[in-house]
């Protein structure tokens, strides 16, 4: 494993993903605000949630890039289309499994079964995060494909 290359490519890929995610919200393709979603796991305070969430998002990006790179090394392939392919698979897991589990693991997210409570007030994402806008799955796909493609094209195999 090329650690130096992982740190650099993981950071740049995360920046790419963040740019697509923020851009999608700015262009009204989705309402999903990933930093706020992550930050409210740690605090109910709005401004702090944005900051904490942004930092958590960067760390997450790096962490997940490790798994991508592990696959690159195992398959001994690292190029943009292979990264993109892993991104597609990653997105399918995020949309179907992670989004379904989110109301259970997020301490401030309401569930459809119980409704909002004093502690759990955030709107759950619903199937494929469609509650956050019907084009949300598309923007998540694009963001993760960009993430994988950048990682695949910048990472140097050992």
């Amino acid at each position: 494993m090329n650690w130096e290359s992982w740190i650099v490519s993981g950071f740049l890929a995360t920046l790419g993903l963040t740019t697509v995610a923020v851009g999608s919200q700015g262009l009204h393709l989705t309402r999903m605000n990933v930093p706020y979603l992550l930050g409210t796991i740690m605090t109910p305070k709005r401004e702090r949630a944005h900051l904490y969430g942004f930092l958590a998002h960067l760390v997450n990006g790096w962490a997940f890039s490790f798994f991508y790179i592990y696959i690159f090394e195992v398959r001994h392939i690292a190029n943009w289309w292979f990264g993109l392919l892993i991104g597609v698979a990653h997105t399918l897991v995020v949309l179907t499994v992670v989004m379904a589990l989110l109301p259970t693991v997020h301490p401030r997210m309401a569930t459809e079964r119980k409704g909002p409570t004093a502690r759990r007030q955030l709107e759950p994402p619903g199937f494929m995060a469609l509650n956050y806008g019907y084009r949300t799955p598309l923007s998540i796909f694009v963001a993760h494909m960009v993430f994988g493609a950048i990682l695949g094209s910048l990472y140097h195999l050992r």
Partner: peptide
Amino acid sequence: ENAPAVLPP
């Protein structure tokens, strides 16, 4: 215009 929305009890 942000998600997740806050749903007040």
